Simulated assay, not measured.
Amino acid sequence: MTSAAQPTSGVHSIERAVSILRVLADTPADADAAHPGLALKSIAQEVHLSPSTTHRIIRTLVDTHLVTQDPITERYQLGPLAGVLGRKYLSSIGLESVQPILQRLCSLTGESTSLAVLHNDTAHVVAQKHSAQALRVDHLSGRELSLHASAMGKILLAFSAQGIDIAVQQLGKLEKFTDSTIASPVELTAHLHEVSALKYALNIGERYDGANGVAVPVLPYGKTSQHIQYALGIQGPSTRLTP
């Protein structure tokens, strides 16, 4: 019984550790400039674990340099190893130079920018740059976006290797988040064919009311495949980012 239970316990520990890393990754760097990072109590509340369990897991993450703790404030942030792994991942997919591009695009537009890759039927954000605006729309690294209700998701569907029709069929039931969400497979298919022809996609309040976005396909340098795996997007409030 003990040997059979150990793998399950180990998997749960890994899942909990990943949840903690996600919470830390979802915290904008400028959320509290005077006291960066999160307190143990806040992390525990976010991952729905007791403070003692959270502390035990996070100590292991600190020991392995995935998380770091400020010795004065005792707050936690992602550690140096997390940064190394992130850069290694971007390098492995040919996008190690994407951060300066996101920074430049953010500076030119004044809005938040991000890069997403197709992963498990979602648009998975792998890099981002937050706008300096107080009112902004951020897609944090690690966030999974609905393919049919995000500009980057539409790009990934429109340039899917399996073709638009099959890609839409595999989405199953389309959730309607707002009045503007395209929840009809027939309408979405027609819309994606337009996106494919135009080479850009818009999101006009389709996931959140008052939040718009635009995205374009990205082909890593040196790659010649016609199928796009990455999408570059700009997101902002509808008061500034208009069609």
Results as ranks from 00 to 15, higher is better:
residue 2 T to K: 08
residue 7 P to L: 11
residue 12 H to Y: 09
residue 14 I to F: 11
residue 20 I to V: 13
residue 23 V to R: 09
residue 27 T to V: 10
residue 28 P to F: 01
residue 30 D to I: 02
residue 32 D to Y: 11
residue 36 P to D: 05
residue 37 G to C: 05
residue 40 L to T: 03
residue 50 S to Y: 02
residue 52 S to V: 14
residue 55 H to C: 05
residue 63 D to G: 04
residue 75 R to Y: 02
residue 79 G to N: 07
residue 85 L to A: 08
residue 86 G to K: 02
residue 88 K to M: 14
residue 88 K to L: 11
residue 93 I to Y: 11
residue 99 Q to H: 09
residue 102 L to Y: 04
residue 110 G to S: 00
residue 115 L to G: 00
residue 116 A to H: 04
residue 118 L to R: 12
residue 122 T to Q: 14
residue 123 A to Y: 03
residue 126 V to F: 06
residue 127 A to M: 03
residue 129 K to N: 06
residue 135 L to Y: 05
residue 137 V to F: 08
residue 142 G to Q: 10
residue 144 E to S: 13
residue 147 L to F: 06
residue 148 H to F: 03
residue 159 F to P: 03
residue 166 I to V: 09
residue 168 V to P: 03
residue 169 Q to H: 15
residue 171 L to W: 07
residue 177 F to R: 14
residue 177 F to K: 13
residue 182 I to P: 04
residue 182 I to T: 14
residue 188 L to F: 13
residue 196 S to D: 02
residue 198 L to N: 14
residue 198 L to M: 07
residue 201 A to S: 09
residue 202 L to N: 07
residue 202 L to Y: 02
residue 205 G to L: 05
residue 205 G to V: 06
residue 210 G to M: 02
residue 210 G to D: 09
residue 211 A to T: 02
residue 211 A to D: 14
residue 211 A to E: 15
residue 237 P to I: 08
residue 237 P to M: 10
residue 243 P to E: 02
